[in-house]
Design a protein around this nucleic acid. Structure first.
Lengths: 179, 179
DNA sequence: TTGCAATTATTAGCCTCCTAACCTTTCAAT
DNA sequence: ATTGAAAGGTTAGGAGGCTAATAATTGCAA
């Protein structure tokens, strides 16, 4: 289900009229809000086509990207869940499928018998490298309507919004991810 | 699952370095792309809190909003599915739950015995009116980091992206929605 | 008028996420 | 040493999407 379920966005004039009935409605806020969700949906739908082309789910692709980082040789389910933003239970299922497909292997930890290490297989690395050019072309095409200056301005505005939304600044513990 | 599964966004320097290994990677495109999905996720997470406060799902809230439009007295499941961007099968389930909760009623069509009309009950209208002030305050708070000029600029940039993504301009058949 | 295609709504079954509970292992405090 | 809390991974069950198939109805065309 898309984040924003409305197929057609309300016109600005409609928002103005609706604001007469609803004092709390801020038209420009609503307009920006709706366009934000809508654009995210359309971008993600484009990415879904990429994922379908390569017969992989969003979750499995993200796990493979995380394990493909040059300085990461292996990782644990808990760490992958944390970096991905899914629960550990969900990560177990993602790893199950990836392992069944021969993309990753589970390995026991020598010191702590609770922890498991997940590593991309040779086939996993090769499979991801096959997808990446298509992925980056996809991203470039999506952003192509904006020039360099507009992209920078967009990022600046989005960062301002993100700062206002960050619940607690304590989450900057882990190292930033890489593509 | 969030649209973007990475908890921490890659730093711009990481993108530069990754571009050395991947010729197709455009750093500024990736940066904008990642921030766009990330911001959409954070905004939507905020809305999820609103929905949980009022014990309603995103889908059911959208259906009630569509039926609450002043010029809409009733609508059909097919039309609601179309406007919401979900399948008719999904819409059947949403209406089932709303009907069970007394928010909407199904009514037979006088002329076409295939079609069903869905209408908000008095209780449905009242229930939605109770949520709306909280909803609009939520939206206003989310957009509060940007001033009027920045909001307009954001909408302009997002619209440019949307135009590049629109698959076919034939979809402008239905009337734009209202909040 | 009779038959066939299109449309409406629904049902059934699948997938993937989630929460809650569970078992094992580790670690720390007594 | 022992016990209890914390952490890692997994399992079980539920919610909500989706596609595909089904049943009833309509409308058009031969």
């Amino acid at each position: 289900m898309p984040l924003l379920m409305l197929k057609d966005l309300p016109q600005y004039e409609c928002l103005i009229k609706a604001a007469e009935r609803h004092p709390a409605l801020d038209p420009t806020a609503c307009e920006g809000f709706l366009h934000l969700l809508r654009t995210g949906d359309m971008v993600f739908e484009d990415i879904l086509h990429f994922l379908n082309r390569h017969n992989i789910s969003q979750g499995r692709f993200t796990v493979m990207m995380l394990l493909h980082r040059p300085w990461v040789e292996s990782s644990t389910p808990a760490s992958l869940a944390e970096e991905s933003g899914v629960t550990r239970a969900t990560m177990t299922g993602l790893i199950d499928t990836l392992e069944k497909d021969g993309m990753v292997v589970r390995e026991a930890d020598a010191n702590d018998r609770r922890t498991v290490h997940v590593r991309l297989t040779k086939q996993g690395h090769a499979s991801l490298e096959t997808m990446l050019p298509d992925y980056f072309q996809c991203v470039s095409r999506i952003m192509s309507p904006l020039n360099e200056r507009e992209r920078k301005e967009l990022v600046r505005l989005l960062q301002k919004l993100q700062e206002g939304l960050t619940p607690s600044p304590l989450n900057s513990s882990t190292q930033p991810a890489e593509v």
